[in-house]
Amino acid sequence: MSAPIAGRAVFGVAADLLREAASRKWFLAFGGVITLALAATGMFLRLDVVDGALAATRFFGKDLGTSIMSVDVVLRPLYRAVAYAIFYGGSAFGILACADFAPSLLSPGRIEHLLSLPVRRWELLVGTFVGVLAIALLGACYGAGGLVLILGIKSGFWTARPLMAAALGGAAFAAIYAAMLTMALFVRSAAFSAAAGGLLFTAGIVASYREKISPMFEPGVGRGIFRAVTSVLPRVAALADTAAAIAARDAVDRGALWSLLVGLVFFAAAVLAIAIWRFEQKDF
């Protein structure tokens, strides 16, 4: 009999979490809303494309009075809006909907049962994190992918950029969820977990503008503290802007994007390291 592969249980835990999410009304309703929006777009949006230019746009039979331009140029604001909606809307929904995954995992009775299984503690945590990351990416890619498919069929213009933007949104949420998971290990409460997510989400937006905000602080201790605290936080708004720019084919500084992404991965890893440390110390 071969020895179990280290970390393999992570995917088992993640799959369990996906099954749990699929059975929750919140997620079903969210999926239903996205499906309805896509179906309405598919059925009622009519794009009149002439030689690659969008000559007219009708929604529910009403002419929207759009300019006659190259179809990909016309669709840019739409893709930009969708990228922002997925990024901010998806993150806000995820913070609320995923807040009680970790507290329920740690609930008396369930955690003892899980720890009695041949699963390491860190695998439980990382599995939960990977499961939530998968939910975030699936939700974002379902919305963006559906829209790309519908607009691609209707306009003949195909692009994978909104999917890339959606994936970026999913990745940013995963970093926020790492903090929510860690909070649940200190205080087993869905409300605290959601509050931690909301706080980090907001602080991450502030951190994106730290270069502009910090001169407003008096030079010295105050500014130093602001800069030190915001330096470690994920740049939520900067990532949202980059995701929207990617979706809308605007110029993107690839170096800055990679820096933000690598920084995001390090942040999530750091917070997960604290979570694992706390979990290892805890008696159940």
Binding site: A256, V262, G263, F266
Partner: peptide, 14 residues
């Protein structure tokens, strides 16, 4: 890891 994260994210701040 937080330090490394701060370093990389700071590079994208300019």
């Amino acid at each position: 890891l937080l330090g490394l994260g701060a370093y990389f994210m700071g590079r994208g701040d300019e």
